[in-house]
Amino acid sequence: MIDFWIILTASLVATTTAILGCFLIMRKMAMIGDAISHAVLPGIVIAYYISHSRASFPILIGAAASGMVVTYLIQFFHQKVKLQQDASIGISYTFLFAIGIILISLFSGNVDLDQDCVLYGEIAYVPLDNLSIGGLYAGPRQVWILGTTLIIISTSVIVAYRKLVLTTFDPAFASAMGISVVLWQYYLMAGVSLTTVVSFESVGAVLVIAFLSGPAATAFLLTKDFKKMLYLAVGFGISASILGYYTAVWLAGSIAGAIATIIGLQFAIAFIYIQFLKKARISETLENKALTEV
């Protein structure tokens, strides 16, 4: 049963992040996702410290606040003082992440968080923290939280699908139609922040990037159709969760780390396959050419 709950948790995280990841990488915003996922840390720690609990609501507020701070900092460095964008992202999120780690060390007695957990989560502990409704066993708390998030994210994406796709692929046309590109960007960022925060306990700040970018990138290699890409990405995410779990058990290592490793392998296989296809296509055209010349 423990296996089942862990795999379910990982799959929920993977599905939510895969959907968002597809939009992020098409918008060339993968690194903004990286920045947000690191930068929510100080907000989460302060919320833990103040509320003395793992209650989700204060933590969401804390994370949203520091997410806003990092967005503002990036904008400040990039637009107000004209620093190049990569450096603006780099300065802002490392600063906030460092503050977060320092806060964890300062509050170490009072906060039920440790530094390692921040980086790669504690998915193995998920089945230990159970929820009961009216005295009945209702499964791990984390599964409920992640399930709700998945529902929220997928409904928001389905409801706004056309506008999101339009602002992603043709922002100029979208603004000409009167659709605010900036508004939908914030809509997406809000989704990313929410997902990062709720996935934080199970997969940590760094590995959530693997979940966000990996399955989407692999799917992007294999198809040109965005809808197909979404389904493929979700499929890759879930299969990586299952394979990753058993790899971790086999190697006695971190589950989130193993899932990230499998995500990397999936990408590598897809990449090599595409290279072979390309080579085959090139040699085929060369053969055809040779034949026609003869």
């Binding site: 990488i25 993968a30 690194m31 996702g33 990286d34 980086l119 790669y120 760094v206 590995l207 990037i209 693997a210 966000l212 970018s213 990996g214 990138a217 790899t247 971790a248 190697l251 290592g253 971190s254 989130a256 780390g257 193993a258 899932i259 990230a260 490793t261 995500i263 990397g264 990408f267």
Partner: peptide, 13 residues
């Protein structure tokens, strides 16, 4: 983003 997080994941594993 992909290489960063996957390498880190392998490292953590």
């Amino acid at each position: 983003a992909l290489i960063l997080s996957v390498f880190f994941g392998v490292g953590v594993l």
